[in-house]
Design a protein around this nucleic acid. Structure first.
Lengths: 136, 136
DNA sequence: CGGTATCCGTTCTGATACTG
DNA sequence: CAGTATCAGAACGGATACCG
């Protein structure tokens, strides 16, 4: 829906790069989920332990109720997070990482490490670029 | 700019998860770049070899000229891609990955592998979720 | 408590037209 | 060829109000 037709746009003669072209949509799909404003935070917190809706809302608190719901629903739909409803009096809902979600978390860590290790380089590159652009 | 204030929203009492909270903004920033609709494709192609603007445009072709330009500029600004202008008659511009960009590509691969390996699980989870939702 | 539905401003994107 | 500028439509995200 978000990338209509472009998945089929690369099945021509040359395409020797290492990550499967025809999987790009799924890959991009997953990256979109992960790069989503809040998903990474949610996965990070849930890896730590099980959380209630309001716990997440409070911890991440820049997030609106709507976006937290949307984020959790997406993660749930992808099988990364499990939602458990306790029909108690003041309704209670728990969220936790599924085994699949845990493997994603593991896979994500190197990227986080990369970002941390190269933060200075990226920042410097941006500053240099902006200076050049500003000098023009 | 895109996440005003939320970087400081997690510096309360408890925050034992493994990826540094205060780095989340940079991490999210990098993930945003990478998860961007076209960045991953561009990085993939450039890792393979140097490309001209029009080569990328043709290969990725679902991308509009504008978005390819924007994407390349962002990657260039972050120091991940180098832009070389050849002032020949029919102007020619080459794009290639910088060493830093190459390290990101390397870091990205596991995520791509994850997505590929778990594609079936995610797809199945989505189908199951949608069925349940549809049955209601 | 844990949502869902709706309204509405902001952002993003593609199409188009024009430039060096 | 390789862009930049502009504009309109689509998608996104927050605020609000209401429900189980």
């Amino acid at each position: 829906m978000k990338s209509p037709g472009h998945c089929e746009g690369t099945d021509d003669d040359d395409d020797p790069r290492q990550w499967d072209t025809r999987s790009d949509c799924l890959v991009r799909d997953m990256l979109d989920r992960v790069a989503d404003k809040w998903s990474l935070l949610v996965i990070g917190y849930l890896e730590e332990r099980r959380h209630r809706f309001s716990e997440l809302r409070r911890k991440i608190d820049g997030v609106s109720q709507r976006m937290l719901t949307v984020t959790l629903r997406q993660l749930e739909r992808d099988g990364l997070v499990r939602r458990t409803v306790h029909p108690t009096v003041p309704l209670r809902v728990d969220y936790e990482l599924t085994p699949l979600g845990a493997t994603l978390h593991t896979t994500l860590c190197p990227l986080v490490v990369w970002a941390t290790e190269h933060e200075a380089e990226v920042t410097a590159a941006r500053a240099a670029f902006d200076t050049r652009a500003g000098a023009a």
